[in-house]
Design a binder for these strands. Structure first.
Lengths: 351, 351
DNA sequence: CTGAAAGCGCTTACAG
DNA sequence: CTGAAAGCGCTTACAG
């Protein structure tokens, strides 16, 4: 007679294994718990023979230290907090960025805790809770806005953090360590190379004010200063929303002017794709009749027909600098400004 | 004489405050530590007067329980693990999804730990480590692929999890709980509504094989079955990479055929934008000469000129179902299939 | 309803 | 180099 399915299932359910503890490793290796701890945290203190004996026990039992217990004893959560912002238009950059950042944090033996918080000063309470609960050891900040309140708040409490992006303080020095990409420099370089390729009507398409993101003004400034330096006209139009559609409308305005631009520098890839749409709608050929560039080197840039010339942000460099600054200490202010790299594609066949 | 800047800085550095502990609250309230714990975790057990006295002490001291200590005692990390995948083409959907998922987890009093892991079976070691270290209580899975190894592996060990996306097992039932959007149903409905609007040449643009994502086949199947049911021809072409460019090439093939389609259903918004590019390049007007639809309702869909008709995935419904299933228990298999909602815009002015 | 005791699984000085 | 002791800050039965 067969055992009923219900009965047999009782036996096949795999029990969630009881975790192996340091105590069991010590017992199996025939040493004290302290010695096992030393093997893990200060192997240089323990004799070769003991070391191997303990390591064998660890291996055979598949022991892994309980992070919670370790955290309680060391007073280190082993977790870094990162606040997720709502920024649909920036997803193409931020999603891969988070992946790379997480890898960078993991390489230091810690892990990433992500959380959500209200924008602005109201969000500070969430940061405060996380620290009060000892849930994280520090923070990586991104999606910084002009006069971002988080930096001074964290720095004032001695909470470790590093910021991707500047706060552009109206006066004084930015509190705490930061890493950023030199958007102004990259846009200036872009203008320079477009000019070298023969363009002397180089327009800019950015976002209309108010734009909280400081990087937006930075990119615009780079374009503007270089145009001024080269003695070029300063034609620009702004997108009234972060969409291709709005960029297309802005482009239409530029192209309807008496002296239409021969090149357009857009403040992001998404805007640039909108620019391209309007350009094509007018039967102008990107990269021939008019050159177009973007910013971010997102999946859109390689994905668009003919390819979009754009500025690649050095994600790996940014994240490794962030992690380094995080550990250097929040009390030390100062920043790291990284260069963006121009990636030439069909929409603007620079050099 | 002025105090030197270096000296004065010594005094202005704010010391990181020593955390308030339960013991201090107990002392201030004049009760035992146990009672404070009860006020926090079982307030119904404590008398009204005591309750208020303790709560006042908690308030005045700004006490927050140390999560690490609580975790050690309760054997609950209070953290749910989520593996970040590399999927640049899917960033537009996954980035907002993660935000919404994090909010859903936070509403249950837990937090999100994100991590990276190698693809396929090699990644299982990372999941194993996280559990062995008691760093997380369970997992939310996404970016599922055909015959995804994670589900059976986790279910076999009794580790709590819930999956966004099906594993499409070759045989048998999918292990563990899952939530998915009915891509086949949404695409079938799209075909039906295009047909009702007068179209009888409805082509499909998806990804070329091999495509790991099961959802890709699901969407295609919905299109195909509905075409068959309506007696329509089954025209399709595939993009050889996840890019607009490849979709544009696939579209060119379709439009060059003897009987070109009057409507094109694309498997994603990104592909649909590529379709639109080729359509416009041929001076065809989307929504007039040819109708085009996407999938995801990403920022691209609202962003493209005239708007892209697409399928909106019910993100909030997905994430709340995931959190519910996570707590229902991994031993119970079974899924929740949610409907995608068609959002009509200019590229296909359905109804 | 309230409190003294034990315990969660580690690490950290400190003796030997 | 190795080990006994105390402690990290909570919670959980269990008496009173």
């Amino acid at each position: 007679m067969h055992v009923s399915s219900a009965e047999s299932r009782e036996w096949t359910v795999t029990e969630r294994r009881q975790a192996v503890t340091l105590r069991q490793v010590a017992a199996q290796a025939g040493v004290s718990r302290q010695t096992v701890s030393n093997v893990l945290n200060a192997p240089e203190r323990v004799e070769e023979t003991t070391l191997r004996k303990v390591q064998a026990a660890i291996e055979s039992l598949g022991y892994q230290p309980n992070r919670t217990a370790r955290s309680l004893a060391t007073r280190q959560a082993g977790l870094i907090g990162y606040c997720l912002a709502r920024h649909p238009g920036r997803s193409l950059f931020m999603d891969p960025f988070l992946h790379t950042l997480t890898e960078a944090i993991e390489r230091t033996g810690r892990r990433m805790l992500v959380f959500t918080a209200p924008d602005g000063a109201n969000g500070l309470a969430t940061y405060a809770d996380l620290i009060a609960q000892r849930a994280v050891d520090g923070f990586i900040l991104s999606d910084t806005v002009g006069d971002d309140p988080r930096h001074a708040w964290l720095a004032g409490r001695g909470i470790p953090f590093a910021s991707f992006g500047r706060t552009w303080p109206a006066q004084g020095e930015q509190p705490g360590p930061w890493v950023d990409v030199d958007g102004a420099g990259a846009c200036a370089e872009m203008v320079g190379r477009l000019h070298a390729a023969g363009h002397d009507q180089i327009a800019f398409v950015g976002w209309c004010d108010p734009v909280p993101m400081g990087a937006a003004h930075d990119r615009r400034r780079g374009w503007q200063e270089e145009c001024r330096r080269l003695g070029l006209s300063e034609q620009s139009a702004c997108a009234d929303s972060d969409s291709m559609q709005a960029a297309a409308r802005a482009t239409a305005v530029l192209l309807d002017e008496a002296n239409p631009p021969t090149a357009i520098v857009a403040a992001s890839d998404l805007l640039a794709v909108g620019v391209l749409t309007e350009v094509r709608r007018r039967k102008l050929r990107p990269g021939h009749d008019i050159w177009v560039t973007g910013f971010d080197d997102s999946v859109l840039a390689g994905s668009v027909d003919g390819g979009l010339t754009t500025v690649s942000q050095p994600t790996a460099g940014i994240t490794s600098a962030l992690v380094r600054l995080l550990d250097t200490g929040a009390e030390r202010s100062g920043g790291v400004l990284l260069r963006g790299r121009i990636v030439a594609r069909g929409s603007a066949p620079i050099d």
